[in-house]
């Protein structure tokens, strides 16, 4: 866990998160999201979660953001005002910001800011077996539920992407 690398990836992630939220152009936002994902993957590697880092890249960067770009291109860009400053949103934002600051403050005040960084826990990292044992023993039910969820999601997408008269097949 190199501090320099942590700072680098943290800064990259935060900057690109700001980019996602602040960018007017949807494609720019998507690319910022991609960059942020690379940053988070770097942080995962810092946390010894190599497998998750690559899975994150595979699932999010390899599929999710591409899907976003695909939809952006399919629907065409929209040149309207990007922000929605309704009173409700502003109030909500302010409240949320205050809560966040309060949380940060409490972390800074009460948090143990400098616990000894523990060495690598056994089984964390690139080794697959611990993950597999966990997934198929303790978390067997959630795995099944996830499978079911994916099936339902697939069916849902197929139904949704049919046109109303049912002439067009699912993409």
């Amino acid at each position: 866990m190199s501090p320099a690398l942590f700072t680098l990836f943290a800064a990259l992630t935060l900057a690109s998160a700001v980019g996602v939220v602040a960018n007017k152009n949807v494609v720019n936002a998507a690319m910022c999201f991609l960059l942020g994902l690379v940053g988070v993957a770097g942080l995962f590697v810092q946390l010894d979660a190599y497998l998750l880092a690559f899975l994150l890249l595979l699932v999010y960067a390899g599929a999710v953001v591409v899907l976003f770009l695909f939809i952006v291109m399919l629907l065409g860009p929209q040149g309207r005002a990007a922000w929605r400053l309704t009173p409700g949103a502003v109030v909500g934002g302010l409240v949320a910001g205050a809560l966040l600051l309060a949380g940060w403050g409490s972390l800074l005040v009460h948090g143990r800011l400098d616990p000894p960084p523990p060495d690598g826990a056994p089984g964390v990292g690139a080794a697959l077996k611990p993950y597999a044992y966990q997934l198929f023993t303790t978390y067997l039910l959630p795995v099944q539920v996830m499978g079911f969820l994916l099936l339902v999601a697939m069916l849902g997408v197929i139904v949704l992407s049919r046109k109303a008269d049912g002439t067009e097949k699912a993409p």
């Binding site: 929209q78 909500g92 949380g103």
Partner: peptide, 29 residues
């Protein structure tokens, strides 16, 4: 980098995402 740093970072990321949900008009964003 300690746990707190990661938590701060994660909270900040979450807050930024929340801000985006509240303030942006484009459904994709």
């Amino acid at each position: 980098a300690t746990l707190d740093h990661y938590l701060l970072l994660s909270a900040a990321l979450f807050a930024l995402g929340f801000l985006g949900v509240l303030l942006r008009r484009n459904a994709l964003v």
